[in-house]
């Protein structure tokens, strides 16, 4: 709110419907990921491979469609299966070994980064996959993943609507289903959760698969929207997702947070990213601002945690 007011007062473009549609766009793809990452963080884990997995799925869509000459929907399906498999492996390794998910997914992150580059070069001879719009099935895919919708006189990308839908869905799951209760419990104390019969391992694996599924959705959106994909897509984004979730109130230690908060974190991110150029400031200030928000957020989180544990003695 404060962030919106700040930029809105300073820049007319920022507060116009078209301006809003503009900064909602980066917020939406980030938001879809941030919501999934927030669920995972509430469940007590990190996924550093989430960013690069967006690239992996986008590239898979591109390669299967243009190089293996399949219908675009087949390619999208293959990418989904691949993403879910990677998510499953992440979750399985974390629950099996008991190693920090930070390390496990760092390994996945590096391996996928290598594969993205290596396989893209192998298939196309370059570091880009292009021409996705020449493939059969593109029109329908474009409608689902990359069309524009008129809302209040402005054209909004359909990803924004998906983002709202996923946020609502994640909130409902967290607060009103058994699975949601298990997510909080697993993140809060997985030994205690297991003692009362919560399937903590399955919950964790499901969360990793959810994050991977979100990466697939965003990867597909990018592939269909841009019609060409760079081999380094998504790298570096994984920390931004975590930042958005933390700004939205997720505890790094797990067990606390919300999907709406993560979405607001993504919203703040989107506003800042486009608000700064609107004010004709140097874009370098963006990262300073982001860091300051993060610091503020973790300090607030610390208070929450202290309040909740004050009476533990």
């Amino acid at each position: 709110m404060v962030v919106f007011a700040f930029f809105a007062v300073q820049s007319e473009t920022f507060r116009s419907p078209r301006g809003i549609a503009n900064w909602l766009d980066p917020a939406s793809t980030l938001g879809i990921m941030a919501v999934a990452v927030a669920l995972l963080m509430i469940g007590g884990h990190f996924d550093l491979s989430a960013g690069v997995l967006v690239g992996t799925t986008a590239l898979t869509v591109g390669v299967v469609a243009t190089q293996l000459r399949q219908n675009l929907w087949v390619a999208i399906g293959v990418a989904l299966l691949l993403a879910l498999a990677i998510g499953f492996v992440n979750g399985w390794l974390v629950t099996r070994t008991g190693l920090p998910s930070f390390i496990i997914t760092l390994a996945t992150f590096l391996m996928l980064q290598g594969l993205n580059l290596g396989l893209t070069k192998l298939f196309t001879g370059t570091v880009t996959v292009g021409g996705i719009d020449d493939v059969p099935g593109y029109a329908a895919a474009e409608w689902v993943f990359a069309s524009r919708v008129g809302v209040l006189g402005a054209e909004v990308r359909v990803a924004v609507l998906w983002w709202l839908l996923f946020t609502a869905l994640a909130t409902w799951v967290l607060l009103r289903t058994r699975f949601g209760n298990w997510v909080f419990a697993t993140g809060g104390d997985d030994v205690a959760a297991r003692n009362v019969g919560v399937p903590a391992r399955r919950t964790t694996i499901a969360l990793f698969m959810t994050t991977a599924g979100a990466a697939w959705f965003v990867g597909t959106t990018l592939a269909v929207r841009l019609t060409s994909v760079q081999a380094n897509t998504g790298i570096g984004q994984e920390l931004i997702y975590i930042v958005a979730a933390v700004i939205g109130g997720c505890l790094l230690t797990g067990g606390f947070g919300s999907a709406i908060g993560a979405s607001l974190g993504a919203l703040i991110f989107g506003m800042t990213q486009l608000g700064i150029p609107y004010l004709r400031w140097d874009a370098d200030w963006f990262y300073f601002f982001l860091g300051a928000m993060l610091l503020l957020a973790v300090l607030t989180n610390r208070l929450v945690r202290r309040y909740a544990e004050a009476a533990r003695r």
Binding site: A185, G188, D189, V191, A192, A193, V196, G255, A308
Partner: peptide, 10 residues
């Protein structure tokens, strides 16, 4: 159990 199997933040 001694640790009560309860989650403090819930």
């Amino acid at each position: 159990f001694q640790d009560l199997a309860m989650i403090p933040l819930m």
